[in-house]
Design a protein around this nucleic acid. Structure first.
Lengths: 229, 229
DNA sequence: TAGATTGTTAATCGATTAACAATC
DNA sequence: TAGATTGTTAATCGATTAACAATC
């Protein structure tokens, strides 16, 4: 369990390992090899070993990984049981969807309140979470020690809401609005960039339809098509 | 406008440039420099020039980029005006939110129908889009030449829905379910991995609180903290 | 022309993969 | 012990950045 320096991309893969392992049948074998994990997740097997070695020592030569230990180590590293107090800003369709989603608690995200400019919404609750006026955002964050802010507001409102969160002492922001946000050093803004994802899908369709018009693409080309896997 | 080989990461940044440029004031100067764009989006300015050069020749030494030309070139490359016929599978909270979101059309994503297993939902419409039984998914895709499938189903249902889309000839899948999906070569599965994003946020909070317990992190450290920007 | 700004070629950096050593 | 599988060190690959050449 070295855990010294972990790369950003490794960190992003860890939850995938964890959820894959948790989905394994209860009555299956207690061990699993890096090769098996790699095949299931379509990753390189050396990469799997390296990723896992950075947070766990559950791997034993000839045996593989003891699944239960590996799950425990991944959960420990990813902060299972940690409670990150969270607010959500912007109770539109997407905000409502995220407010209603129960699965975030597993990852330590506990939404304690939502905020909106719409006075018609203020005062009601969604999924037992109160909707408060956005003016109270900084003071609420300060008073409740809020650690994460989720932004599901329109692009035009995002920067000011981000600043309000920062003013309230929030140091981690999950931004679903389609804009780049400025925040001081020490505050992490993680952007969920839907447009980027769509660009990849759309480019894939465009380039593949051109290619397949001439000759069907083989699997080698398909993999290498855009920067490789 | 070289457009020969474009890297995956460049492709992902292009929509950000486009939306930033479109948000610029109408009555502002007609030109902008790479340095100005880089500062606004917190990117390297060489990176901005390289990215833009791969899809546009709107840059002129001493002048910068003619904004209107640059927008046109970006739109053209990203396939503005293209209509990718899309279905959405899984009309839960998230599915509803995405169905109701009008902004996707700008990126060529046109949802023509939604599918669900819940017979109570089947027959109704959301945002003028009919909800159909999931059994009809492959035939509907085949008959309507569906190009993109959006998966907002629970993890347990995702692989079979993915296979149904593939059976219907869909070659681009946007997966919001928290599982890795298997698809044949030539079919792109783009996963929107919320758990990965949460892992980054949560790790940031964990490591920063440890550090700041001893000594406040400076901005240099903050940037380098996890694999650099 | 001189200066500012773009585009490109070479160097660096980070992540992945291949080769190998360690070990149960 | 021999063999399978892990972990690590070195090589490769891709993306970013620095240095420079081109040009309006």
């Amino acid at each position: 369990m070295a855990s010294g320096n972990i790369s950003r991309l490794t960190l992003q893969r860890l939850p995938t390992y964890l959820s894959y392992l948790k989905g394994l049948p209860e009555d299956g074998p207690p061990n699993i090899s890096a090769a098996a994990i790699a095949a299931a997740l379509e990753l390189g097997e050396v990469q799997v070993r390296k990723d896992l070695a950075s947070v766990s020592d559950a791997g034993k030569p000839k045996i593989g990984y003891l699944i239960s230990d590996l799950i425990q180590d991944l959960e420990h590293f990813l902060g299972s049981g940690v409670c990150n107090r969270t607010v959500l800003v912007g109770v539109g369709n997407l905000g409502l969807a995220l407010l209603s989603y129960a699965g975030f608690a597993e990852y330590g995200l506990h939404i304690v309140a939502a905020f909106d400019v719409n006075t018609a919404l203020v005062g009601s609750t969604v999924n037992q979470k109160p909707i408060l006026p956005v003016e109270e955002l900084p003071s609420f964050c300060r008073e409740h020690g809020i650690q994460i802010g989720v932004l599901t507001v329109p692009a035009a409102a995002a920067q000011s809401c981000c600043s309000a969160l920062v003013a309230g002492g929030v140091r981690a922001i999950w931004n679903f609005a389609p804009v780049h946000l400025q925040a001081p050093p020490g505050v992490l803004v993680q952007r969920e960039n839907m447009a980027s994802s769509l660009a990849l899908l759309s480019y894939h369709l465009k380039t593949q339809s051109i290619t397949s018009g001439k000759i069907e693409m083989n699997s080698r080309q398909a993999e290498k098509e855009i920067g490789g896997k």
